[in-house]
Design a protein around this nucleic acid. Structure first.
Length: 259
DNA sequence: ATGCCTGTCTGGGACAGA
């Protein structure tokens, strides 16, 4: 079972790139973020023709998340992160696929910090902590995959050089503490578990020539509940996807779980 | 401090991204 996450940065303008990657990488389940499309303009038929059944939560201009499953219909369990009924941003979707609970998230960026966007980011992470604890307590096999918008550490496995990012929301103590608390709950950071100390970037800014310089950040993460962590056999990043014409600024990350 | 690049909504240029 291969489960991937990919911040697609606009599913309509990136559709050909998405279908190309699905055909090559052949994930059984793909979590997508930053659809940048309302519900009605999600390219459902193209996804279905590629062999995947989608569930999605769209939004005008920004955000938007989806879960695609190959040859099976995901059963959606949530279309929003609990904890704030006034939050209208499409950043969370959850579905059961083949006996596994798949949570797909797009955490707030939080810049500029300090400020209201950073406050929203931190509050969102607290809501995630509360919901993640409930998922763990359920003892169900759960994957929480997506764009966490957190660089976990200053280490070379997470960032090429923290110097020019030290004031960025992605590196601040509050979101890092929230991410660490998630791991302390019992979640396994699959990429980190199998590739400690090795650069495993998932994002390279379009600006400042950062892709050619391999100046990347690790911000897309796949967290596994204990019952699934035991089945982890492989994990990686499809880095070459980032180098293509018209690429997203993120590359897909994936795990392979033993049946 | 700013622009660097890209997508969206528009129908130029602001906003958001990270």
């Amino acid at each position: 079972m291969k489960i991937a996450t990919f911040n697609i940065n606009g599913i309509r303008s990136r559709l050909a790139r998405l279908l190309e990657w699905l055909a090559e990488s052949e994930p059984d389940i793909a979590c997508l973020q930053e659809l940048k499309a309302v519900h009605e303009t999600f390219p459902e038929m193209a996804i279905r023709n590629a062999g995947y059944s989608p569930v999605w939560q769209g939004q005008k201009s920004w955000n938007g998340v989806a879960i695609l499953a190959r040859g099976i219909d995901p059963v959606m369990s949530r279309r929003a992160l609990p904890g704030d009924d006034d939050d209208v941003q499409s950043r969370y979707i959850e579905a059961a696929v083949d006996g596994i609970v798949i949570a797909c998230l797009y955490a707030p960026n939080g810049n500029p910090q300090p400020g209201p966007k950073f406050d929203y980011k931190n509050a969102w992470m607290q809501r995630l902590l509360a919901h993640a604890k409930e998922l763990l307590d359920s003892k169900a096999p759960v994957v929480i995959a997506g764009d966490y918008n957190v660089v976990p550490t200053d280490g070379v496995e997470d960032i090429y050089n923290p110097r020019s990012w030290k004031n960025d929301a992605l590196l601040q103590p509050e979101p890092r503490e929230a991410y660490m608390r998630l791991l302390k709950q019992g979640w396994t950071d699959a990429i980190h578990r199998l590739h400690p100390g090795e650069p495993m970037y998932t994002f390279w800014d379009y600006m400042r020539n950062r892709w050619p310089r391999d100046a990347g950040l690790r911000i897309d993460h796949i967290l596994l509940a204990p019952s699934l962590a035991k089945k982890l056999v492989d994990a990686g990043v499809d880095k070459e996807v980032r180098g293509r014409e018209g690429a997203s600024d993120h590359a897909p990350a994936w795990v392979v779980l033993k049946k």
